[in-house]
Design a binder for these strands. Structure first.
Lengths: 148, 148
DNA sequence: AAAGATTGAATACTCAATCTTA
DNA sequence: TAAGATTGAGTATTCAATCTTT
């Protein structure tokens, strides 16, 4: 493992952290103004929508959205109270629970996406070329994969 | 303003958000294991170290680290209690306060940096080419600048 | 024992209200 | 009246302890 951090990598990391903070702040503010789902709720529901059977074990969901188990338990509580998902017992392991997205959850995703997409375009995509976007996606995919 | 989000940009945004969550989680965990400064404290102290006179108005500091005013007040309370910075009255505006980094703060930065750097190398830089790093830094700099 | 999920205690963040000075 | 900073109330997050099932 190299010990040296090049100036380019140092700059890239600094921008990565700073831009993330500023961009997500703006986007979350926009979502709140338009009474759309906050980013955390969107991520949870999108993970469920994409999952097989539109449900996921809480364990797996915590991993997907990068939250502690207890943090996820409480986030799921709130989203469930809003009727956008429900818990379901796991038939093969009675310790386990699934989170399943509801019809209202799918509807909320559908309504939020145009607002979220517009914000991504406005704050991010407009300023990044197609080629740069591909480089960013491919480099970060590689870094993520190595995280194991 | 274009309404359309290309697949490449959509992918890039998704990876940007996901990689940020995963990478900062790992890095923060490493810092905690090694009893180094947490990322938030590091950011505050680094902003102060780089600032003119090694001090910044609390207002400006909140902007730099992307925290609400009240959030920053409390973060500064904690870092000040640890002796790594101190508040100083603004001579020209008695409403205002500066945060000034202390010697202990500079020392803590110096001790944390090798650990932080090693984590950045290991989790990020190793997997990103020099050329990709330059593309990431330049694209994100552009997006940030347009945020006004 | 160990694993999935939840709960309690401690900590940290935001918004709105407040205090002080400009 | 407004601006800089802080405080109070409410909410969200984590770690460690707990409960249930494997």
């Amino acid at each position: 493992m190299a010990e040296i951090l090049s100036e380019a990598h140092d700059d890239a990391w600094y921008l990565f952290v700073t831009a993330h903070a500023k961009l997500t702040e703006r986007i979350d503010r926009r979502l709140a103004e338009r009474r759309a789902l906050p980013l955390e709720w969107y991520d949870v529901l999108l993970a469920l929508k994409r999952a097989d059977g539109r449900k996921l074990r809480l364990n797996e969901l915590a991993e997907r959205v990068t939250l502690s188990r207890s943090g996820l338990t409480r986030l799921v509580d709130r989203v469930e109270s809003a009727g956008l998902l429900r818990r379901e017992q796991c038939p093969t392991d009675r310790r386990g629970a699934f989170a399943v997205i509801t019809g209202a959850g799918l509807k909320a995703l559908t309504e939020t996406w145009p607002i979220y997409r517009q914000a991504i375009v406005e704050y991010f995509a407009t300023h990044v070329t197609e080629r740069e976007a591909r480089v960013i996606a491919s480099a970060l995919t590689r870094a993520l994969k190595e995280l194991g």
